[in-house]
């Protein structure tokens, strides 16, 4: 069933690489305005879900709808233009381009100089460090700054749905909080729906509304994030004692 308030419906999706299953019958959905977290161990299939949504990986079964429109099978370029932005894992800045040019690449599919300028000002206001580094090449930024840059670059596309793949990976603990805070603001202030993939389950559950726990290509547990934080199964499997 296609529900209008669902910005994303990911239904019974199967995806395999060279006959090895990455996803087997995964169903998740994101409601307009929501932050949804996907938690689970490395290799569970979380990133494959994001790659499937943006069309970077072609799905083998099932269907994907964005705002009620079917998007599986479309090229990444068209999907991005519809309003889905993805921040891939590993802070993939364009290393030999300036911070400015990186951000401007985010507006690649957009038209209207004044509008783009306004988004740019908003992004620079949200991440003042990028303003300080505006003319520097992106490869010379610190890990945390690069993460801000790729999130800012994704915001330049003016997305309705933002997909974040492991934004806290390899970032200094102090900056993880900053990143978490900006994700909350992007969701709350700009009304952008967020689908967040994280190995830092505690952080992910504390800033999301709902969450899905993924293991070996399937959804095993799902529910309200605040309930999952106290769920004994989740505690045992994903929260551990530390973090």
């Amino acid at each position: 069933m296609i529900v209008a308030s669902r910005i994303l419906q990911f239904q019974d999706v199967e995806l395999y690489y060279d006959r090895v299953y990455a996803l087997r019958g995964v169903t998740i959905e994101v409601t307009e305005g929501e932050t949804v977290a996907l938690i689970g161990a490395n290799g569970a299939g979380k990133s494959s879900i994001l790659r499937a949504i943006t069309g970077l990986s072609k799905i083998d079964q099932g269907s994907i709808y964005f705002k009620g429109e079917r998007i599986d099978g479309l090229e990444p370029a068209s999907i991005v233009a519809m309003g889905i932005a993805m921040v891939p894992e590993g802070r993939r800045v364009f290393p030999f381009m300036s911070v400015k040019d990186n951000l401007m690449m985010g507006a690649f599919t957009r038209k209207g100089k004044a509008e783009i300028r306004r988004t740019l000002d908003g992004v620079l206001e949200r991440f003042p460090r990028l303003k300080e580094r505006y003319r520097q090449s992106a490869g010379t930024l610190s890990g945390g700054e690069q993460q801000m840059l790729v999130i800012g670059r994704a915001l330049m596309t003016r997305p309705r749905l933002l997909l974040l793949d492991e934004p806290s990976l390899g970032i200094a603990p102090k900056l993880v909080q900053d990143i978490a805070r900006s994700i909350v603001r992007i969701n709350r202030d700009d009304g952008v729906s967020v689908l967040l993939v994280e190995q830092n389950s505690r952080m992910a559950l504390s800033i999301s509304h709902r969450a899905f726990a993924i293991t070996t290509g399937s959804v095993v547990i799902s529910g309200e994030s605040r309930d999952l934080l106290n769920d004994s199964r989740i505690k045992a499997a994903y929260l551990g004692g530390s973090v």
């Binding site: 970077l56 364009f94 690649f108 596309t157």
Partner: peptide, 20 residues
Amino acid sequence: RALRALAQDRTAAQLMGVNV
């Protein structure tokens, strides 16, 4: 700019809407 982006990171360029 799109050509440079494509040369520096193909996946990231695709995610910016560059038609490879």
